[in-house]
């Protein structure tokens, strides 16, 4: 088998997590430069998927490979700190005691970059994300959209091959959501790595993703290109999901 397999590219994962009365079983293949959305209701296993990919949770079985790196397989487990997945958490989880600039520089510090160089590089990313004016501001004073951009900059400054977004729109109010979503879509289009987006809102999937995986109770209900899934839902559950969201 291994002799025949060609060099893998992007994210290749089979995620199996078993808990009492719950089993998540999900295969994901996300080529570089594409976005896969994992859509499902609360308790469907979305967050577990994300935590497993980020290395914050050990899987029961399965594997996670990224390019030619093996991150999880059998006894092998690369810790969250060393696997280098960029994560934009739900609520963004910016460090409240650090300025926007220091938040973005945090990962560079953690990777041993000297203070000045890290701040310089973080500042470049803030500029790129139109956040230059907010460098010295604490997260508490940022708007939802700004906080999301800082969180994205903080994750992307390390130039990860894998970007994970956990409900990136959930913390935003409805009035800014459309605009912020469009901005995020543009940023994801220009990103060269594999992106996995977890959301309960199919609108996010339609706007941001190439492929969609619909998850329910830990199992895949339907998968495919976003528009194909929206157009031809396999059952009422998926139809309801996209029917209500695809406005």
């Amino acid at each position: 088998m291994s002799a025949l397999s060609t060099r893998a590219s992007g994210l290749d994962a089979v995620i199996v997590v078993e808990r009492p009365a719950f089993r998540l079983d999900l295969a994901l293949a996300v080529p570089p430069g594409t976005v896969t959305a994992v859509v499902g209701p609360n308790g469907s296993g979305k967050s577990t998927t994300l935590r497993a990919l980020a290395g914050l949770l050990r899987m029961t079985s399965g594997h996670i490979r990224l390019g030619d790196r093996v991150l999880d397989e059998g006894d092998l487990h690369v810790t969250a700190a060393s696997r280098g997945a960029g994560v934009v958490f739900q609520d963004y989880l910016l460090f409240p005691h650090l300025s926007a600039l220091e938040n973005v520089a945090f990962g560079l510090h953690a990777h041993g970059m000297p203070h000045k160089a890290a701040l310089g590089q973080a500042r470049e990313w803030l500029d790129r994300f139109a956040l230059a004016d907010f460098a010295g501001i604490r997260p508490g004073q940022l708007s939802g959209g700004q906080a999301q951009r800082v969180a994205l900059a903080r994750a992307m400054v390390l130039e990860p091959e894998l970007l994970l977004l956990d409900e990136p729109m959930a913390a935003l109010d409805a009035s800014t959501r459309v605009e912020v979503r469009a901005e995020l879509a543009a940023k994801l289009r220009s990103y060269g790595g594999s992106t996995v987006l977890v959301t309960h809102d199919p609108t996010d999937a339609l706007a941001l993703a190439d492929e969609v995986v619909v998850l329910d109770h830990g199992s895949v209900v339907q998968r495919g290109p976003v528009r194909a899934v929206a157009r031809a839902p396999v059952n009422d559950y998926v139809a309801g999901l996209f029917g209500s969201g695809a406005a």
Binding site: A81, F95, F106, A110
Partner: peptide, 20 residues
């Protein structure tokens, strides 16, 4: 969860303790 965030950014436990 802020410690999780720091960990995914590559911070060691000691750095998470000290900086977060």
């Amino acid at each position: 969860r802020l410690e999780d965030a720091a960990e995914t950014l590559g911070a060691s436990r000691w750095m998470i303790f000290r900086r977060v």
